[in-house]
């Protein structure tokens, strides 16, 4: 059950667009910096496969310049 956090850098002038695009993806929380061109993204997925799917979705976002991982946690599955 991976939980990961990232710093997302938008292409110039496309921060708002990026916030919208990421918030539409299921399992993603996004917090936008007020005074810098950067967002914090936290993702929560069920398993590795879901993570892969998420990665593909991120790759498709045009306003995203760079996604840098900050931390990754693996929590035990709920029984």
């Amino acid at each position: 059950m991976p939980i990961k956090s990232y710093l997302a850098h938008p292409h110039q002038g496309r921060k708002e667009e990026l916030v919208t695009a990421i918030s539409e993806i299921q399992g993603c929380d996004v917090v936008s910096a007020k005074n810098e061109e950067i967002l914090v993204v936290v993702t929560e997925t069920e398993n590795k496969e879901e993570e892969e799917v998420l990665k593909i979705k991120f790759d498709a976002i045009e306003s995203l310049k760079l996604l840098a991982m900050v931390s990754g946690f693996n929590t035990p599955k709920e029984h």
Binding site: I3, S5, D29, V41, V70, S71, F73
Partner: peptide, 9 residues
């Protein structure tokens, strides 16, 4: 953990 992840970022 989600909060922690957010905070680290």
């Amino acid at each position: 953990i989600k909060k922690m992840a957010m905070l680290s970022a």
